[in-house]
Simulated scan of single mutants.
Amino acid sequence: MEIRLVGAPTGDDYRSLRAELLERDVPGVTLGERAPDPGTLGPVVDVLQVALGSGAAVSSVAAAVITWIRHRSADLDVTMTASDGRNVTVSAKRVRGLRADELLGEIDRMRADLDGAAPPERPELD
């Protein structure tokens, strides 16, 4: 899976998200770099790569991304792309105001979109 930040991300944003993923024991998280822009020094971090093996791992990644993005001051979007090309984008603006039950639904939706499976049924919370 590839994770890209959209907006005005910095290398520190990618490193911070990587730390959140590693804190949740998501395996195989690496920073992807490209060559520096002309006139600048050092490679540019422009993607996170995550080695996934199961739907549970996708849920862990989705939960980590939502937790991370809700606590960012910048209005970034995060696009996650599975190896088969399925992708999902989550927006900081959209998830900041969600209640706990809505956040669980968002995680389920992200997992279903990336796995190609129907999201699990959840009881309505009052």
Rank of each mutant, 00 (worst) to 15 (best):
G7Q: 01
L21S: 14
D25G: 02
G42Q: 10
D12T: 09
D25C: 01
L21C: 10
E33W: 04
R34N: 09
R24G: 12
E20L: 02
E20G: 05
V45K: 01
R18G: 08
Y14K: 06
L22V: 11
A19T: 06
D46H: 14
T10V: 06
D37I: 01
P27E: 13
D46I: 05
G32M: 06
V26T: 07
D37G: 07
S16D: 13
P38V: 15
G11E: 14
V26H: 02
G28L: 09
D25T: 09
Y14F: 14
D13C: 00
L31H: 01
V47F: 12
G42E: 12
G28Q: 12
D25E: 12
P27Q: 12
G28A: 15
E20R: 04
P36L: 14
V47S: 12
A19P: 00
E20K: 07
A8P: 06
D37S: 10
V26K: 03
V45I: 15
L5T: 10
L17M: 11
D46F: 09
R15P: 06
L22K: 12
D25H: 11
L41R: 13
P9A: 01
P27M: 06
V26G: 08
T10P: 05
E33A: 14
E23W: 01
L31Q: 08
V44F: 01
G32F: 00
T40V: 09
P36K: 11
E23C: 03
R18P: 04
V26Y: 05
L5K: 08
R15Q: 14
D46P: 07
P9E: 03
G7A: 04
T40L: 13
V47N: 11
G39R: 07
V6T: 02
L5E: 05
V45G: 03
L31A: 11
D13A: 07
V29Y: 01
A8K: 13
D13R: 02
T10F: 06
L17Y: 07
V26F: 04
A19I: 00
G32I: 07
L5A: 09
A35T: 07
